[in-house]
Design a protein around this nucleic acid. Structure first.
Lengths: 112, 112
DNA sequence: CTTTTAGATCGATGACCTTCGATATATTTA
DNA sequence: TAAATATATCGAAGGTCATCGATCTAAAAG
């Protein structure tokens, strides 16, 4: 119980099943090579945004498949989509990435 | 290319498909409620270790199922297992968790 | 209003994944 | 050696997921 760390350690107690299901769902959204690349592509895009149609070619996937992955990322809160005319501009939600990273904070106060 | 950050930003360039597959596999290993709880249980265990047989009851799963998940976590480098007599003492690999967290480092230099 | 383009949804298919009982292997104990 | 305990592996059943073509909705352009 030292508490000399900047962020709340994850596994102070044992994570409960209900929380585990919810957290795992968010992490699983990133546990796919296509979705990992989508996040990467959005982050590297000029202005940090890109529309779905711009992702199909670099990913080498069909439009429905890209739309499917974007939906999963959206539902996981990892990207947002703003419609502008015909296009939907997608953007990475950095705060959500931060949250997931904090969940994976190693249990420094317990280990070894 | 500022480099005013303590850690290497993730998405400087776009992650390549090959790397994405490998990284996604590691993240997917944590994208499961059971395996998330296993990591939590190991971290909370006295000395940071526990054998497989101690996990069955709190997880409410059969021995083969627990063994299956431990294998996935092992192959992802997230836990190590040291045999001592009849038991295999499992332990969380904090460094591996750190690596995954760094991969998810938000693209601060690009966003918004 | 018709055509064009972007995006979402539907339905199907094939692959993968979780789970278990049964069984095999490893190691200690009697 | 025989029995008991911990772990790993096998094979099967059931569910979930990624992917696509076809289709529908939304919005701009002609």
């Amino acid at each position: 119980m030292g508490m000399e760390f900047c962020c709340t350690p994850v596994f102070e107690g044992v994570i409960e099943e209900k929380d585990a299901v919810e957290t795992a769902k968010a992490i699983a959204a990133l546990g796919d090579p296509v979705r990992l690349r989508i996040v990467s592509l959005l982050a590297a895009a000029p202005g940090g945004t890109a529309c779905g149609c711009e992702l199909e070619s670099p990913l080498g996937l069909s439009q429905p498949t890209v739309s499917h992955h974007l939906k999963i990322l959206r539902e996981a809160g990892l990207v947002t989509g703003n419609r502008e005319g015909r296009w939907v501009h997608y953007r990475v939600v950095s705060q959500r990435l931060d949250e997931i990273r904090q969940v994976l904070m190693p249990p420094v106060s317990v280990g070894v």
